[in-house]
Design a protein around this nucleic acid. Structure first.
Ligand SMILES: NC(=O)c1ccc[n+]([C@@H]2O[C@H](COP(=O)([O-])OP(=O)(O)OC[C@H]3O[C@@H](n4cnc5c(N)ncnc54)[C@H](O)[C@@H]3O)[C@@H](O)[C@H]2O)c1
Ligand SMILES: NC(=O)c1ccc[n+]([C@@H]2O[C@H](COP(=O)([O-])OP(=O)(O)OC[C@H]3O[C@@H](n4cnc5c(N)ncnc54)[C@H](O)[C@@H]3O)[C@@H](O)[C@H]2O)c1
Lengths: 203, 203
DNA sequence: AGGAGTTTGTGAACGGGAGAACAAAACGGG
DNA sequence: CCCGTTTTGTTCTCCCGTTCACAAACTCCT
């Protein structure tokens, strides 16, 4: 988040900023920001603030996005198309190297300049391009088997969009994005707002 | 998450389950599950477990997804198309009532059986259909102004896909989904795995 | 050179979620 | 009808992230 806020500030022409300003851009408390940055080192100057470009580089280096990370996307349906076409990944240090789908009818397609290839090509692509990160955008029933194949092929980080709990060996990281749950959380608060105006006092 | 796990169990024909089973399906610790459920009430039976269908209804009622929530999606580009076509929302208590875009060229399109309409129609749609939840899938630069219009129109919950911090009045809930940050988190752990094999011991 | 003003870095207090552990409750079998 | 077994509901403890508050450090102006 700080990285993005810094990029925004840099584009706006700011060269130096205080923890207060940066925290506001990132939408967090300034004390939290300073503590977070302190874990990386002491990159600010007391009485002055942080050099935007310098701090940006330091955070990028710490996260590991100074190099480009190759990524494969599996499941080129509605969501897979959107992800493949998204330019924001490229500019943030990620490069989509392959789009895979189990459906042969999809293999004629070209999406975002890349051929949609057979899922059977997974192993060779992962090996050749040293891919460590895989994205799963298949239906939920297929997600676990896709994850298993990914892990067997050598992928050690998975971003999962399918609404399922994935089981993976130790050493493999999984993060999930679950849009329905996000909406459910909003609905819950919405219900409380309209439903019980006096409930907050009681509870 | 529990709701989804219960739905899965019910589809598999299970009528009763222990906290241990349900926790495994949802991917959490069984003590945590029991504590979470205890906040809703005492819906289990000691020595037996939980009635799947009964508990499912109780959770759905608590969250507020027994009724249908109308939703508008603004920004029908790559991501907006995918969201509009996603059937999972409907089955989880959400109904997309309108697709809005600022680009007049989009207004000819029909996506998932709905006309893409002008962003100017926002206010009338929100009023007529009593829409409380809005989804933002526009470019980042437009997100804040779209959010402002939504709030002014009466929307009180926003799901934001644009990589920006939104500022909204008190009483309005915002949740954000940020795919680049998810990938960055994976990249960070990936770098640590391959980079410093002895770092974990040291740190 | 020195003091006033700013802003960082961090120690300490706070709050809350997660897990271990156990008592209370329900069921079944004798 | 009572006792052993199973499983929930809850308490207690631990741990980690967040925030407050302040001393240390830097700049600028006189
Ligand atoms: N579309 C959305 O906006 C959205 C929102 C939230 C969650 N999701 C989730 O994301 C996933 C994808 O959604 P979608 O709408 O793109 O679905 P989709 O049906 O449009 O696309 C799924 C694609 O995966 C492919 N596929 C199926 N099995 C496969 C396998 N074993 N290996 C490789 N590819 C396989 C299919 O051929 C298809 O092209 C689903 O799990 C869905 O629940 C989607
Ligand atoms: N595509 C993805 O997979 C993806 C992934 C992560 C994040 N995002 C984010 O989601 C957002 C949308 O991405 P996209 O790829 O669909 O972009 P896109 O450019 O394909 O679509 C954006 C749409 O928003 C419309 N729009 C622009 N300004 C508007 C306004 N003021 N009011 C109403 N509509 C307006 C445009 O006409 C266009 O149709 C972006 O902020 C992007 O960063 C997208």
């Amino acid at each position: 988040m700080y990285l993005r806020a810094l990029t925004g500030l840099a584009e706006g022409g700011t060269t130096t900023c205080s923890s207060e300003e940066l925290a506001a851009s990132a939408g967090v408390n300034s004390a939290k920001l300073r503590k977070d940055l302190s874990y990386l080192g002491s990159y600010g100057t007391r009485g002055v603030g942080y050099d935007v470009e310098y701090l940006r580089y330091q955070i990028a280096r710490e996260i590991g996005v100074t190099q480009d990370w190759p990524v494969v996307i599996v499941g080129i349906g509605n969501l897979g198309h959107a992800l493949a076409n998204y330019s924001g990944f490229r500019s943030r240090g990620f490069r989509v190297v392959a789009l895979l789908d189990a459906d042969p009818d999809r293999h004629d397609e070209v999406v975002a300049g890349l051929d949609v290839r057979s899922f059977e090509d997974l192993e060779s692509i992962v090996t050749e391009d040293a891919v460590a990160i895989g994205v799963i955008a298949t239906p939920a029933v297929a997600a676990q088997s896709v994850a298993d194949r990914m892990v067997a092929a050598g992928i050690t980080s998975i971003l999962n969009f399918a609404p399922t709990v994935l089981t993976v060996p130790e050493g493999v990281d999984v993060r999930k994005v679950d849009l329905s749950i996000e909406l459910q959380i909003l609905a819950y608060h919405e219900q409380r707002k309209s439903g019980l105006p006096t409930a907050e006092v009681t509870a």
